[in-house]
Simulated assay, not measured.
Amino acid sequence: MMRNATPLKPLDRPRRTRAVIERWKRERERWMAALEPTTLFQRLFDHIPGVYFFAKNRDGHLMFASEGLRQRYSMRDETEILGMTDFDLNPGSMAQAYVDDDKRILDGKARIVERIELWWDRQGMPDWFLVTKLPLYDKRRRAQGVMGILRRPDEAERRLPVFQTVAQAVEIIRREFSKPLLIEDVAKSCGQSLRQLQRRFQSAFGITPQEFLIRTRVLEATKLLEQTALSASEIATQCGFVDQSSFSQHFRKRIGVSPGAYRKRSAGDR
């Protein structure tokens, strides 16, 4: 039993003048300028389990990435990830979504806080994360990059109706994408109307379930183009596209090149 326990409370503090506050702001700037940039606060994220940190410049090149994030891409140290872009690390359709988000932040059109995202590694393994992104400013308050953290949602968050509905829909799409899948049927399987599912999906991912279905098909197509000798027509059929023309159209729109050009580029990288 604790004896003589005194409850702690904040000390009474006199109100500081604006001059004192401005002096300490100048002192903070002087102190920050004297620090070695690579030993700043981002190193703390190496020691927070399940939380990953990154910072990119205006052109999307990674300047910092915490140890946990580097490990997801099988990289030993920061020299391997420094200067890489989302397109160097992720499937094209996913990378483009991240880049689009960054551009909206840099243009002052959005601030992304705690949005659910499904991240893939090079092996195509999905994992759920809550992603927070904020702009990085220079001393003249001009956006010079984007910083962010990723964290896995806890059990309480995973039980939220929005999360459960979206997660269930994602699992159905990932399992059935190669079939002639209708989003109306996905919504019905989740006990939702089409409008409800679209609204919750948009809130979670920033895209519609229809777009997620197409991106899932395109992602699978990139893997087949890289790893097999299947023709474009065969890949279109295996990935659930109605025909080769539709496959090529959706692939080019999200990856930026035709399936044939992507295959040649991938073969040249090996």
Rank of each mutant, 00 (worst) to 15 (best):
M2R: 11
N4K: 11
A5F: 04
T6H: 13
T6Q: 03
L8W: 11
R15C: 08
R18Y: 09
V20P: 09
E27W: 09
E27S: 06
R28V: 14
M32Q: 09
A34Y: 04
L35Q: 12
P37R: 01
P37A: 02
T39E: 11
L40Y: 04
Q42K: 12
G50V: 11
G50T: 10
Y52I: 01
L62P: 00
M63C: 10
A65H: 00
G68N: 05
R70T: 04
R72D: 03
Y73W: 15
D77Y: 00
I81N: 01
M84L: 09
T85H: 01
F87H: 15
L89S: 00
S93W: 03
Q96H: 13
Y98Q: 08
D101V: 08
D102S: 07
K103Q: 10
R104W: 02
D107Y: 08
K109C: 14
R111D: 06
E117N: 09
G124Q: 07
P126Q: 03
D127H: 07
W128A: 09
D138G: 09
R141F: 06
R141N: 06
A143T: 09
A143S: 10
Q144L: 08
Q144H: 08
Q144F: 07
R151L: 02
R158I: 02
P161D: 02
V162Y: 13
Q168A: 09
A169T: 03
V170C: 08
E176V: 04
S178P: 11
E184T: 14
D185T: 10
R195G: 12
Q196F: 07
L197P: 00
F201Y: 12
Q202F: 03
Q202R: 14
P209N: 06
F212C: 08
I214C: 15
T216W: 03
V218A: 05
A221S: 03
L225I: 10
Q227V: 06
S231G: 02
S233R: 06
G240Y: 05
F241H: 02
F247W: 11
K253Y: 13
K253C: 09
K253V: 15
I255T: 01
I255A: 01
G256H: 04
G256L: 03
P259S: 14
P259Q: 04
A267F: 08
